[in-house]
């Protein structure tokens, strides 16, 4: 179990400090670039320039339209399956300690998910042609 203890010991907030610094530098870089471009570029704003692009014809209707439900369905299915992928990570790191019993349990877990997957396919949730 020494791997587990080692990782617990090293998980101090200071370990994540480099990424905070990296975040500050990255945000700083992007903001500075956009500011420089804002200062250097011309500012001749006209009414025609600021309307939304619609291939040169006058804009028709509203762009805040309801979208196809399929996109949201995919997003919800993603949440379910991504949880499965996330559950795999702790298993993947520790599977040697969990041995064959742990492996059987993971096979069971995947089998349950495959059942759910087959159900989704049979219900036609992944059919995009109406």
């Amino acid at each position: 179990m020494d791997v587990l203890m080692l990782s617990a010991e090293q998980n101090t907030p200071f370990n994540y400090f480099p990424i905070a610094l990296q975040l500050v530098i990255a945000v700083g870089f992007v903001v500075v670039m956009m500011l420089v471009s804002h200062l250097l570029g011309p500012k001749r704003k006209t009414e025609d320039k600021l309307i939304n692009f619609e291939s040169g014809i006058p804009s028709v209707g509203n762009a805040r339209q309801p979208m196809g439900i399929k996109y949201f369905l995919v997003a919800i299915l993603f949440v379910l399956f991504d949880v499965e992928v996330i559950f795999f990570y702790p298993y993947a790191v520790n599977f040697k300690y969990l041995g064959k019993e742990g492996f059987l349990e993971v096979v069971l877990f995947v089998a349950f998910f495959l059942c759910g997957f087959i159900y989704i396919v049979k219900r036609g949730a992944l059919e995009w042609e109406d």
Binding site: M33, M34, V36, S37, H38, L40, G41, P42, K43, R44, K45, K49, L50, I51, N52, A63
Partner: peptide, 13 residues
């Protein structure tokens, strides 16, 4: 070239 371009924000956005 991109640095010297005007950065537009459309009115409706």
């Amino acid at each position: 070239k991109l640095l010297f371009k005007e950065g537009l924000t459309p009115n409706a956005s």
